[in-house]
Design a protein around this nucleic acid. Structure first.
Length: 439
RNA sequence: GGGGGCGUGGUGUAGCGGCUAACAUGCGGCCCUGUCAAGGCCGAGAUCGCGGGUUCGAACCCCGUCGCUCCCGCCA
């Protein structure tokens, strides 16, 4: 018999169907047994009149909550039933996999264990509908991103995650044995994205893993995460990159709202607001002034940079002034940016770069890249870098590499913002942090 | 890496110098019941993270250690 989903029971009244799912609750009474079966589409009540088959009834009594079960039965209307006025009258029951008892925790209990404990038993935690919705939304987010890229003729890249040298400072690299030498896990596909520009691919994207050996213990950092990277050729400035990114994000939000807006409202209690374009843009110098006006003191050592509190304060300002959840902070001082960001003008202390702050959280860094080999080398030296390890990279720009720029976005951070989660560990399938390597 | 907080049955909490360590939930048993956040009764389950110290006496105070957590640094 073909499987019927709980969500399709209404269309099958009077028929005998097969359901596959988990036993969420068993209410075992004198004459009746009620099995609440959960599948990805919802909950259904399965009823068994015990005197019909005492042997079957005895077997049901032995089935523990969260067991994987397969039942067949006739779908009947019954206005008394609070679960949609429908129930399935049990005919057969197969226990596909008995759940041991007791469970490490009840995913449907009134109080949930703390996050860290739930991460130990992540597959149980993921049985909660809020989590399955999260990953359905994440799937759509990536699909929508690809739809937009596809319309704009982007090419998808898969760059290597094993590298011989750091792409930036090198302080945050995981190293590993690579036959008789050392290799590193990439901290960013940055150089390879730019190589594609030198290759003439013009517009590329990559969704892939990124590794950071930072001992960071915050609600928004991971040692391994999924980076969404974009690089575009023939641009005039970072403004072109921002313009692309805001429209792309607007498209993603629109798709999510259209498809899951109601469900997200119901389960996460969040109204998806499709952002208006253009997003507000604030040059860093002005941001610093605004913060000063609002009485926010940036830590002295930051020098043109913003601390997370400053980012949240700017986000609050933007919300008040423009009623917008996003803000591009632009034109960062070169001192706080990597060597490959292009200067605003020759020898300017500022760069053609931006951060995208969403609801106070930094989700993107983007920039126009310096594509003139001689200036790039000079900027690297100014940052105290040695040219030898990055010479192959600088060489990308020796034989006709067009002007270009792009950005990197943290997928899990975007999910945090989208669904208003306060910890990135909840917005990623399996969290990796300095002390978390399992499961 | 720096600073603050926390660590008590499976889980979530209470207790903060004299307790046979309490409550909820879950678990086991019995009773009732077309149930539906089911209800009632009974029961099992913690040497209070670990190590040391102070004290007549420590879950409770002190030191160390480990783990978690929050903030900062770093960033996506």
């Amino acid at each position: 018999m073909e499987r019927t989903y709980v969500g399709d029971l209404k269309e099958n009244i009077g028929k005998t169907v097969k359901l596959e799912g988990w036993l969420q609750t068993l209410r075992d009474q004198k004459k009746m047994q009620f099995l609440i079966l959960r599948d990805p589409t919802g909950l259904a009540q399965v009823a068994n009149f015990k005197p019909n088959d005492e042997e079957l009834a005895a077997r049901i009594s032995q089935v523990n909550p969260e067991s994987a079960i397969i039942v067949t039965g006739k779908v009947v209307e019954n206005p008394v039933v609070k679960l949609g006025g429908i129930e399935v009258q049990l005919e057969t029951l197969t226990v596909d996999n008995l759940a041991e008892s007791p469970l490490p925790f009840d995913p449907f209990g009134e109080t949930l264990p703390m996050l860290d404990y739930r991460l130990d038993w992540r597959y149980m935690d993921l049985r909660r509908p809020i989590n399955s919705l999260l990953f359905k939304v994440e799937t759509l987010v990536q699909q929508a991103m690809r739809e937009y890229w596809s319309q704009k003729h982007f090419v998808e890249m898969h760059s290597p995650k094993l590298t011989s040298s750091p792409s930036e400072s090198g302080a945050e690299l995981f190293s590993l044995d690579y036959f008789d030498r050392k290799a590193y896990l990439t901290q960013s596909p940055q150089f390879y994205k730019q190589m594609a520009m030198a290759a003439g691919f013009e517009r590329i994207f990559e969704i892939g893993p990124v590794f950071r050996a930072d001992p960071s213990f915050t609600a928004r950092h991971m040692t391994e995460f999924t980076g969404v990277d974009v690089e575009i050729s023939w641009i005039d400035s970072h403004e072109d990159v921002m313009e692309f990114q805001e429209r792309w994000l607007q498209y993603v939000y629109q798709r999510v709202k259209d498809e899951y807006g109601d469900e997200i409202k119901e389960i996460f209690g969040v109204d998806i607001v499709v952002p208006e374009v253009p997003f507000p843009r604030i040059p860093m110098a002005e941001a610093v002034r605004i913060l000063k006006e609002r009485g926010y003191t940036i830590p002295a050592e930051k020098k043109g940079d913003l601390d997370p509190g400053g980012e949240r304060e700017i986000a609050a300002y933007v919300k008040e002034k423009f009623n917008h959840d996003f803000v591009f902070l632009t034109d960062w001082p070169a001192t706080v940016r990597p060597f490959y960001h292009m200067r605003l003008a020759p020898d300017s202390p500022l760069t053609r770069s931006y951060d995208l702050i969403a609801n106070g959280l930094e989700i993107t860094t983007g920039a126009q890249r310096e594509h003139r080999a001689d200036i790039l080398a000079k900027q690297a030296l100014e940052k105290g870098l040695h040219l030898e390890p990055i010479q192959y990279y600088i060489d990308f720009f020796r034989y006709g590499c067009p002007s270009h720029g792009g950005f990197g976005l943290g997928l899990a951070r975007l999910m945090m913002v989208l669904l208003n989660l306060n910890n990135i560990r909840e917005s990623v399938y399996i969290f990796r942090g300095p002390t978390r390597l399992n499961p």
